[in-house]
Amino acid sequence: MSTAALIFGYFVGGLVSALLVLARPPARTLRIWRSAALALLLWPLWLPVAFSTSEAERPARRPVELRISSAVARARSAIAGTALEVILTDADARAIAGEVSRIARRLDAVERELRECPLAAERARARLAELAEGDARALDEVSELAELLATELTLARHGHGDGVEPLLAELRARLEALSSS
């Protein structure tokens, strides 16, 4: 196969990938056009990521998600390279991120439902609003606990963190409750 044919084949693959990216979501936002451009040029690397989950099309992460992930990252980096590392492992951090992301996604869906169905029955709207409020409150509580945990672990690194265990237990219990909700 000649080099020209190879390049032509590559860009045909890119064109098909870009069209697939554009055809997938209901609305073509700037983000989707950018994703299509990347798929056209770098489809072997970009396509798996663009198609990995519907998360890619989410407008943005909620501020509370960012607060939680930043607090967990801060907690992990506070204990990195110390004996305390086993308290909050990578797997724990991933589990927290996964659970928080699941709840945030559910909250997105409920809020969208509330926005897009203004004529739904009063009882149904009240039920949705209650669910949204519960999820938002739960995320705020997890965020607060994660931030406290990050501070305690920073103190623990310097030999002053007495509240790590109860905080961690509370955070785990809260996440367990969320995962069963």
Partner: peptide, 24 residues
């Protein structure tokens, strides 16, 4: 400076597109 955090984010599907875009 904190590659462990980036490793963690690579497993988070919502953070992945942004990481891949910046990495490219």
């Amino acid at each position: 400076r904190a590659p462990d955090q980036v490793v963690g984010q690579c497993f988070d599907s919502s953070a992945r597109p942004s990481i891949v875009g910046r990495a490219l």
